[in-house]
């Protein structure tokens, strides 16, 4: 069944007519050309497809088009501002928190989402908050360092 959904992606209005049961992930990648959000499993088990919907970290592969009308969506492509990287992106680079890097957009978006709901997370809250984001290169040590670095910068108000 087709529908027309109107929603905002990275500050821009989008209007998409498509099958109601297509996932937001497919539409972002195939219709809107936003391939920064990754497909990892299609079943909500790896969080490579994490985006923010109305400020909350959500798995785009588990979100269908009949759920996005009127919502504000943020993807990895919208995070840097006029070429200046977001502090979380800076922290991932500073800590070398990437090997193949395929999980990184989802990790970064999950971190941004975590900071929105918990501006000053402890180390344990960071681990718990990111636990569903998988990295098969298993670069978890540097990712944790990156998120802690970004959290520290937030705490210090830098």
């Amino acid at each position: 069944m087709n529908l027309t959904a109107q929603f905002e992606v990275n500050g821009r209005e989008q209007r998409v007519s498509t099958d109601a049961k297509r996932t937001l992930l497919d539409v972002l990648r195939e219709d809107l050309g936003l391939t920064g959000t990754k497909f990892g499993c299609g079943e909500g088990q790896c969080r490579a497809c994490t985006v923010l919907i109305d400020g909350k970290a959500v798995q785009a592969c588990q979100t269908t088009m009949d759920e996005v009308d009127g919502r504000k969506i943020e993807t990895i492509e919208g995070l840097a501002n006029a070429g200046k990287l977001h502090p979380v992106q800076e922290a991932f680079i500073a800590e070398g928190a990437m090997q193949c890097g395929y999980c990184v957009p989802g990790m970064v978006m999950a971190t941004v989402g975590l900071f929105r709901r918990n501006p000053k997370p402890t180390a344990a809250e960071i681990t718990a908050g990111l636990n569903g984001n998988l990295c098969r290169c298993c670069g978890y040590v540097n990712v944790l360092k990156a998120v802690q670095r970004a959290a520290q910068i937030r705490k210090e108000g830098r």
């Binding site: 936003l34 391939t35 920064g36 959000t37 990754k38 497909f39 993807t75 990895i76 492509e77 995070l79 840097a80 990287l85 992106q89 991932f92 680079i93 070398g96 990437m98 890097g101 395929y102 990184v104 957009p105 970064v108």
Partner: peptide
């Protein structure tokens, strides 16, 4: 550091998929 780190953290790098 990873020479294409910026492409990776911004989602600009195009993987095969």
């Amino acid at each position: 550091p990873c020479v294409n780190g910026v492409e990776i953290v911004t989602g600009a790098h195009r993987y095969p998929s």
